[in-house]
Design a protein around this nucleic acid. Structure first.
Length: 481
RNA sequence: GGCGCUAUCGUCUAACGGUUAGGACGGAGCCCUCUCAAGGCUUAAAUACGGGUUCGAUUCCCGUUAGCGCUACCA
């Protein structure tokens, strides 16, 4: 049975890189009929926060992919200690009574890799037992094979054969002096116990994997398969971090900005992986069928955001495409809470009539607020009188157009075709081009020059609102502020 | 510093020894058109550098450079 896991630690929000790791795990599990396990790696009690845990769940739920089993490492401590104990009893680990070095220690100097402290590594067992029994705190360190050195090997599903000499692996900690397991121990212990068959995680773990191989070996467990994923980086090529790059690195930002979960998942899949068939817009089912580690890249991928554009243009485009692919009725249901959330108490029926007009013009759900604001607010946002002037015209022409529009619309049925017929007729009787007729009206009712098609807009806005706004525009013309 | 990983248009990527180096986003231009979108068409834009191997290298090998990661009693 194929089993994969996603193991976030609750020390921050859900990062988009983590989200992608989750997605690839999920895809691989679904592709092969395996199980997707969510494991909260919360052994760092100092840094864990409840908010972080909540934000991770929020993000994962929004992704809408789900998982099959769920665990929390902090509930499995006894099991981790048992494995540490077993390794210790085999003589493959030793107690290190050196006081914990806070911050940066002298170990990792410019001199090279710190490997071990011989005094502790070679401490006679009786003395070690005596000091432990006396209650002296100690960390448990893995006794990395030194003599002879040997190559630790594994084959990565993405990166291929990997090897590293034990001469370059330090005696890493298994247990902290407070008795808590370290990430390395807890992770491996749980991977064994949960019978994880494939470990799929970020490439930043690739060097840790050699240590893990050592642990699996010491515990007498079979080695799982490994697949490391290239990292997501910012345009400046550095690792995405909230501190440096802001909220764009958090999954909830995408949710709150009006991304559709599926479009977002689609985007993340395309960063660092390719279906190799030139297809980009992929349904969840297609993603499952097409996913393979063969298509995973080995180099870091840039998420191309900027100050001007906070989201990767491709993510935005994918989202716009997904929005347009939605049935207007479905889209309307998604748009309603966005509009209401912004403080406009509109009715579902009204939203349903607006939706077809904004559908092709919004890239994110939240764009509805700017693209369709004149549908929601009673009073238009302030605009410059000059905006009312049509092409090749002047304020006087704007005035004549609006007066004529007022008369015409007062006597016209508010349906698309009737509006078009009478407004075109009006432009003819004024002896001007249709465009010159429409422009001032558009600005008068929408408050700006770019808006959805005029007749449909008027139809949705209705006669009284339309006439009132035209009246206000005329007033504005007479008393420019 | 040590160890590891990586290197194709601005970005995401295809080409797993032989292609005019392909696609997408974004950009530019044109068309459509009541504005804006959407749509259609066109276009600019890449194999980091230097050596090999080979009849032939984006592709294989070595080196250089650059970037990233690990080097915690964080994960």
């Amino acid at each position: 049975m194929l089993r994969v896991r996603f193991a976030p630690s609750p020390t921050g929000f859900l990062h988009i890189g983590s989200a992608r790791t989750f997605i690839f795990n999920w895809l691989y599990a679904r592709r092969h009929g395996g199980a997707m396990i969510l494991r909260i790696d919360d052994t760092d009690v100092e840094r864990n926060t409840a908010q972080s845990l909540e934000s991770i769940f929020e993000g994962l739920r929004w992704l809408d992919l789900g998982w099959d089993e769920q665990y929390r490492q902090s509930e499995r401590l006894a099991f981790h200690r048992a494995m540490a104990d077993a390794i210790f009893r085999k003589g493959l680990a030793y107690r290190d009574f050196t006081p914990a070095a806070g911050g940066d220690s002298e170990k990792s100097g410019a001199q090279g890799t710190w490997l071990f402290n011989p005094d502790m590594r070679e401490l006679p067992r009786e003395e070690s037992d005596r000091r432990a029994a006396a209650g002296e705190p100690f960390a448990l360190r893995f006794r990395v094979p030194r003599d002879p050195e040997r190559e630790i090997r594994f084959t990565d599903l993405v990166y291929g054969p990997q090897a590293k000499s034990t001469a370059d692996i330090e005696d890493f900690a298994l247990l902290r002096s407070d008795g808590m397991p370290t990430y390395h121990l807890a992770s491996c212990a749980d991977d064994v116990d949960l019978r994880i068959s494939h470990i799929v995680r970020g490439q930043d773990h690739i060097t840790n994997t050699f240590k893990h191989v050592l642990i699996f070996e010491a515990a007498g467990a079979d080695l799982p398969e490994f697949a490391h994923l290239p990292l997501l980086v910012a345009p400046d090529n550095t690792k995405l971090s909230k501190r440096r790059h802001g909220p764009v690195v958090s999954v909830t930002t995408y949710r709150d900005s009006g991304f559709l979960p599926h479009a977002f998942v689609n985007f993340l899949c395309l960063v660092g992986w390719s279906p190799k068939n030139d297809r980009e817009q992929l349904s969840r089912q297609e993603l499952i069928e097409l996913f393979s580690f063969d298509g995973v890249h080995r180099s870091n991928a840039v998420v191309n955001f900027s100050e001007a554009d906070p989201f990767d243009p491709k993510a935005v485009w994918l989202n716009a495409e997904a929005i347009r692919a939605l049935d207007p009725a479905e889209l309307s249901v998604l748009l309603l809470p966005v509009v209401r959330g912004a403080g406009f108490p509109i009715e579902p029926d009204y939203m349903a009539r607006i939706t077809p007009l904004v559908r092709e013009r919004i890239r994110l759900l939240n764009d509805v607020l700017t693209v369709g604001d004149f549908f929601f607010r009673d009073e238009l946002a302030l605009y410059d009188v000059a905006e009312l002037v049509p092409k090749k015209g002047d304020l006087a022409l704007a005035g004549r157009v609006l007066e004529k529009a007022g008369e015409t619309l007062a006597a016209t049925e508010f349906s698309h075709d009737a509006l078009e017929a009478s407004l075109r007729g009006a432009s003819q009787s004024l002896g001007i081009k249709a465009g010159q007729m429409f422009e001032p009206i558009r600005v008068a009712v929408c408050g700006r020059k770019t808006a959805p098609p005029l007749f449909s807009t008027l139809e949705v806005l209705g006669q009284s609102t339309s006439l009132r706004r035209i009246r206000q525009a005329i007033d504005k013309l007479h008393s420019p502020v």
